[in-house]
Design a protein around this nucleic acid. Structure first.
Lengths: 151, 151
DNA sequence: CTTGCCTCTACAGCCGCTGTAGAGAGTAAT
DNA sequence: ATTACTCTCTACAGCGGCTGTAGAGGCAAG
């Protein structure tokens, strides 16, 4: 007797990636088109689990999809030097560190802002005052922190 | 003689917010509909500069637009207790701290991953190995590889 | 046979903008 | 007055990385 075919739901729970996300990955060609059963259901195998787990780990570490694409490409050329892999990882580390710095600055400012507030009416609220006039609140000059919120 | 009317470009440079972003804020009712000149150009005044600056500062601090909406609402009721303002700020601080923790964990793992890689072919690349199997990577003694990446 | 979850496709929506196209308005220099 | 140039207008699509919806069909257990 045959083993039961792995459907998308099974793959989903094995790799820890939602069904809809798997279909999305397929639509952007991050996961290959799987075989289909007669009734049209997607059928996966162990290599799918591996690939999807790889993608998941990389996403967990914040690698953008495009980097993951590159990593998978590189993986398929095992004789090449791994310097390019290293470079992608270092780029990601630099990115994480950048966001870390920005968030630390944010935390400091929010803390200062909240600490200064001693309650009372909205009219005298230091939190709102800080937001209205940055300079009143800041101890040091930083650039804009736009774009910090993802991830 | 009258002062020249403030157009969207002037407001943009005064508040440090892009023209397109101002129009976007208007479209989501975060900025009110401004007066228009005869030819249909948006005309702003000082209160617009203040409001937009407030929004910008709050965005810089990572407040989501919906929170900013709430803050502006509260601002217009100056007699109220500022506890609700405080609560919004604290929620934001909690959010920032959460992301900070996540990023710190990410940084540690990326560092470990990169430090372990000693070059060579893609086939033996520890970076790819880590991504393929998370658990292989977490076992390393904490701190042993620290510092290998600096400088 | 019914129940109840699983899977299918196709498409809209999320956030917070950013970019595009094509047209009209305003200003400065010739 | 004409040219050249910038600014502004509207409307809509696109970004990343999914998530959610609707409506239909598949499949196994009781």
């Amino acid at each position: 007797m045959e083993l039961k075919a792995m459907t998308i739901g099974k793959l989903s729970s094995r790799a820890g990636v939602k069904v809809t996300t798997i279909r999305y990955y397929e639509s952007i060609d991050l996961m290959p088109q799987p075989h289909r059963s007669e009734s049209g259901q997607r059928i996966y195998d162990e290599t799918s689990v591996e690939r999807l787990s790889f993608i998941r780990h990389a996403r967990d570490l914040g690698f953008p999809v495009e980097s993951i694409r590159d990593l998978i490409d590189l993986q398929s050329k095992p004789d090449q030097d791994c310097a390019s892999v290293d470079a992608i990882a270092r780029r990601q580390l630099a990115n994480v560190r950048y966001r870390l710095n920005q968030l630390e600055a944010l935390e400091a400012e929010l803390k200062r802002m909240i600490a200064a507030c001693e309650g009372g009416s909205v009219e005298n609220c230091t939190v709102l005052a800080c937001l209205s006039d940055h300079n009143n609140c800041r101890e040091d000059e930083h650039g804009r922190l736009n774009g910090l919120l993802e991830g």
